[in-house]
Computed example of a mutant assay.
Amino acid sequence: MHTTDPASVGFDPRRLQRVKEAMQRYVDRNLMAGIITLVARHGQVVHLEKVGWMDRENNKEMSLDAIFRIYSMSKPITSTAVMMLFEEGHFRLGDPVSRYIPAFKDMKVYQPRGNADYDLVPARREITIRDLLTHTAGLSYGFDERSPVDELYREKVWKRMDTDPDVKLETMIEAIASLPLAHHPGEAWRYSMATDVLGYLVQVVSGKPFEVFLEERIFAPLGMKDTGFYVPEEKASRLTAVYGPAEGGGLKVIDSATDSSYLRKPKVASGGGGLVSTTADYLRFAQMILNRGILDGTRLLAPKTVELMMMNHLPGNGRKPDEPFNGFGLGGSVLLDVAGSQGYGSAGNWGWGGAANTWFWVDPREDLLGILMTQYMPGFVLPVTEDFKNAVYQALDA
């Protein structure tokens, strides 16, 4: 991949070297195995560096064409697919989801009684497509160990995904729809499997398997040749290993590069977290978003559609409860309060990350984007994404 002189687009080259230095420290301290970072401004890549290993146990250094499990960085791509169908007039954002997926009719909401018991009360209104895009539908994920609703997700959704050989996208979504909502639609932000539901919505509305729609309408037009729901055999050597903290310090393998489930076609194409990709491929997607819907003459979205996606859609111009400096748009977070974030950025920054600490953002004000690719779980416990962002912004001098 060609890189441009950073000075030509307003970066101090010496200061920009601090990005690699910051990432190298994570490897040197045995906190992460390997990292790729990319920075682009005015459509030009000014920084592309790799440190460490993609498969330390097999002595494979990080490669710029390494393939990563991007987990929830799948969500902005799925949301883009939804907005493409919205542009074509297939639905309105305020439409009830049940119009297209009848299982979501007459949803019930979990209401605790103040002890271990609970009631199920009718939802005050139906879930809309915008509720799914903004994680305000009342769905959940199964992550919260204290939530009875999440316990149901673990039992009825995730256990079935692991044990049912015949599970498919449709049956997974029906399982989600059978569970109570954690809150009434539109009343709060709760991270959830809503984007998996959106993937099925794309399938229903387009009449094509979700994975086929993404390939034909997004990946092929953008030239994202290494992005999909699994790594084919001929590319298997490029898959990275996933690491996590070992007892007593250091790293241990969480998901092997040589025996990962991502080397096999999945039973379900998860729009919320199922994709693999490369730094180069995700650059093409992120640059399309930053360009307001177009890349190299190929337009996927109208400028006004991207503008709508990057607005804060939380009720009452609200904030994410875990990040009170961020709102949430259609498929990604929106930076509202730069000072409150205690770091660099611009109001209006939009982006998202994945469970293994992959992360990207676009900054329309500075015409800038950043991508970090690594494979470390749990996500966002180490401040690597914050260190990356801060090292990028301190290098701007124009």
Rank of each mutant, 00 (worst) to 15 (best):
D166R: 13
E151K: 15
N312P: 02
I173E: 02
Q44S: 13
I371E: 00
R41S: 01
T3L: 11
G271Q: 07
K75G: 07
S341C: 15
V51F: 05
A33C: 03
A280T: 15
K108D: 05
V167Q: 12
V334L: 06
S8L: 14
V253E: 01
E187G: 07
P13G: 11
T163G: 02
V157R: 00
L93R: 10
P122T: 10
T305M: 02
Q17W: 12
T3F: 05
Y282V: 10
W53L: 04
E174F: 13
A246P: 05
L93F: 07
L16K: 03
A188E: 11
V157E: 00
K225A: 06
L308Q: 10
S237L: 07
S277M: 10
L169S: 04
D166T: 14
K20C: 08
T258R: 14
I254F: 12
G353K: 00
I67H: 08
V204H: 06
A257G: 06
G345L: 10
V46I: 12
N326K: 12
M310E: 15
T278W: 03
T80M: 10
Q17L: 15
A103W: 09
T278G: 03
G370V: 05
A66F: 04
G89S: 06
E126V: 01
G329A: 09
G272A: 04
Y153F: 15
V167K: 03
Q111N: 11
K156G: 01
S140W: 07
V362A: 02
P13R: 08
G114V: 11
F68N: 04
K252V: 09
V268M: 06
T374L: 08
K304D: 15
S206F: 08
G318F: 05
W350Y: 15
A257K: 02
S140M: 10
P221R: 05
P122H: 10
A40H: 08
R15Q: 13
G43A: 07
A246E: 08
L251T: 07
Q44K: 14
A137C: 05
E216P: 05
I218W: 03
P112W: 12
E366Y: 06
V392W: 01
V392Q: 02
I218R: 01
G10H: 11
H90M: 12
P112H: 14
D12V: 03
